[in-house]
Structures are given as C-alpha cells and as structure tokens.
C-alpha cells in the first residue's frame, strides 16, 4: 500500500552569522527512510519533536516533494498524481482543520461530498456509520467554530473518512484532547482498524495511542528509522522486562532467589517485593514465590513503553 525507498528531504535553513550575514546550512529532515506498509496495517510513527515525522507524512500525502528516493502510495506517486491520490487517502492534521469554520458540521460534510465527488448513497452510508460510532448527533447542526476540541476532532475524523479512503494519515489526532475524547477517538480507530480495509498511519506523542492501536511501531530520530517492529520487539531489543510485584504476609527469607528473575526492590518493611523477569515465565516465578512465602496479593506488570521510548530518544 505504501512504499518508501531511501526517502530523503533536505531543507536549506539560514543561520544567523553575525549581525547581518546569514549562512546557508542544509539540514536533512528525513534522511534515507525505507519502509513498506501493507494493506490493513496500523502503523504508529513516532519520534521526538523535529525528528521528521510530519515531513514524512507531507511527502506521503503529496504536499512536499522528496529531495531524493522514491515514494508510492496506493500505487501512485504522491506529488505528480496528487489529485488522484487525494481521492484515495484521508488526512487528519490534529492542529489544522479540514472543516468550514462558520458552517454547521452537517454542511461541511455535504460540501466534502462534492469536493470528493462521492455518490450520495455511499456518502450517506458512511456518514451514518460515523454518526453512530462517534456520537455526532448532538452537534451536527453546530457551527464548527463553536465545537469543543474533542467534538471537532470527531468531525475531522468523519470528514477524512467520508470518501472511503484506502489509507488514513493521522497527524497527532489526540493532541490536546481530554481523557474521554481520547478514548472515543481511540476506540473508533481501533474499530476501523479491526475491519481491516483501511491502512492507518498515525504520528503521536501519546504512546497510549500506539499501545492501544498499533501492532507495528516505527521510531524515527534525526530523520532515520531507529526501530521498526512490534512493541514487544522494541522491549526485547532494549532489554525492558515484565516484573512481578507481590504483597507478602511476612518478609522474604534471607538469601532467597528466584531462578531467572532478579530482585529489583523491597518496600513496605519487606512486605512488598518486585522481581524483574529475565528468563523466567510469570507462571514459574509465581510458583517459586508462593512455595517459599505466604503471598497475599500479586500482579504482573507490563514494561512501560514511555520508559523505553524516552531511553531511545536520549540515546542520540
């Protein structure tokens, strides 16, 4: 569905050198990215500010011309075939609206039907589905300028889907939203992804979006891909481990060890212990622990993706 081969984008920036002189410097915003994304995949595209996420997205949607390398989306080359491509992709820029500021949401949708030349029946069916899933009914007649950010984002998502795109690009779709709206957007996207007919690429700073939605994670930094794979693979690569947290009736006996696990912390006067699971399975560790001391309560904690990613960013 999406192919990028050694994709590069250079920008010329003028740097102040002295009072009046400016020096030109070439900065590679995207520096040789090669990716292949198949139909129906849901890919999270993350990276620190200025890593090249938006630039990549702009090259994929036909806004920017690559400096070198090739890119193809839906079998089309974005820039020369921009209008053709636009009919087959949907784009949501979290901070820019595709809607008409002064018109009710309903009219924005009606307009988009003309802009994208969608047959009325198809348009109505898709709108009906979005209305149901995103609870649009209460503000369909409200001018966009009066919508809350969460309502507007639900409108933007609908606007991007009304022409039945094959690929949906989302640039920070949850930015600035409250917890409830974030959940609504996420579960809508999850449902969309589960149907399997839309390929979804999203950039975000909120890693909960990724954990909830994407089986594949691409991390970019300084214009280069530093990780491409599942979230589990990222954890494996950076040695992040699940851990076992147990509340004990009595402190651990001295010198107690669990095979394949490391004692990471002892708190609450020795009544709470945390083991990092290195090679042991959770089951074996629990069995070993219960055999040695009376256990009141225990839980297996998944590794924190925020930790891994912040370690990844700080490794530059």
């Amino acid at each position: 569905m999406i192919q990028m081969q050694d994709l590069k984008k250079d920008f010329v920036v003028r740097v102040k050198a002295g009072r009046l002189r400016r020096k030109k410097r070439v900065v590679a915003a995207v520096d040789g990215v090669s990716l292949s994304i198949g139909r129906g995949e849901m890919v999270g595209y993350i990276g620190p500010n200025g890593a090249g996420k938006s630039t990549t997205l702009k090259m994929l949607t036909g806004v920017l011309t690559p400096s070198s390398g090739t890119v193809s989306v839906c079998g089309l080359t974005p820039v020369p075939q921009r209008t053709k491509l636009a009919l087959r992709i949907g784009v949501v820029f979290g901070q820019r609206s595709q809607l008409w500021w002064d018109l009710p949401l309903r009219e924005s949708f009606a307009l988009l039907r003309h802009v994208y030349r969608v047959p009325p029946a198809e348009h109505a069916a898709r709108l009906e589905r979005c209305r149901e899933l995103l609870d649009l009914d209460e503000f369909m007649e409200t001018p966009v300028r009066q919508l809350s950010l969460g309502q507007r984002m639900r409108g933007e998502l609908t606007a991007a889907l009304l022409h039945g795109p094959e690929v949906l690009f989302l640039d920070e779709p949850t930015i600035g939203l409250d917890v409830v709206s974030k959940q609504a957007v996420r579960s809508f996207l999850a449902e969309l992804g589960a149907a399997g007919d839309v390929t979804l690429v999203l950039t975000t700073h909120d890693l909960a979006d990724i954990e909830r939605l994407c089986e594949r994670l691409v991390v970019i930094d300084h214009g280069r891909v530093v990780h491409d794979g599942s979230i589990e693979a990222l954890h494996a690569r950076y040695g992040s481990r699940r851990s076992l947290v147990a509340d004990l009736a009595a402190p651990l006996p001295d010198g107690f060890t669990l095979p394949g696990a490391t004692l990471a912390a002892v708190t609450a006067n020795g009544h709470r212990v945390t083991f990092t699971l290195d090679s042991s399975t959770a089951g074996a560790a629990v069995a070993g622990l219960v055999a040695a001391v009376p256990v009141r309560d225990l839980s297996v904690v998944e590794p924190d993706i925020e930790d891994v990613v912040s370690r990844l960013y700080s490794e530059r």
Partner: peptide
C-alpha cells in the same frame, strides 16, 4: 498551514 490542508484535497 492552511495551504497543506488544501493540498490534500482532490
């Protein structure tokens, strides 16, 4: 960035 939003329409 309005221009970007316009450029992704057909």
């Amino acid at each position: 960035g309005t221009l970007d939003a316009v450029l992704v329409r057909p």
